[in-house]
Amino acid sequence: MVVDDHPMWRQGVARDLAEAGYEVVATTGEGGQAVRIAPASRPDVVVLDLQLPDISGVEVIRGLLATLPGVRVLMLSASGEEQSVLDAVKAGATGYLVKSASPEEFLEAVRRTADGDAVFTPGLAGLVLGEYRRLAKGGGGPADDEAAPRLTERETEVLRLVAKGLSYKQIAARLTLSHRTVQNHVQNTLGKLQLHNRVELTRYAIERGLDSPD
């Protein structure tokens, strides 16, 4: 499914996907509509522009995952939207690509997202690193210190190298790990952040419920 509010871009992306052998089950320019039609069109992968006119990327991702828990989300955005990219990752997106990427890079990202790989840009890796450090300092809320997710030394090492622009292949060679292991480390960094986010949201909801007089 392709979700982007620019018709020419949307059509171009859908055409590239179709030419590469993918079945495009739906295209839309609105996040709300994407959420509504997803249960019927059942996409495996949603290519999502983070900047939509109606609802935020985070809301789209939450809505999609609520009805299609296994759906993979590859987000696209112009550069310089750090916070929204990070929020989208925490909400459950597993792939990120800047819109200036080449068609080959785009198709590669779709293929890997469909396979369940975490698709990172160096910029996203830097953001994720920063988020872990912020959470470890208790920047995410009062009770966060203990509950804060932590990266292992190896995960930190791998994420730093991604942030410095090394490919998984180069990282594998430098750390003498297999390509698959590097991928797993990167995936885990997202998984822990997403899990933490879900726990926080649940806790917040429960606290709100308990606090409310009715």
């Binding site: 160096p122 920063g130 450090r133 730093r160 410095k164 622009g165």
Partner: peptide
């Protein structure tokens, strides 16, 4: 290409 990574820890 060049990448700049700023960290504080």
């Amino acid at each position: 290409r060049a990448w700049v990574l700023l960290e504080e820890e």
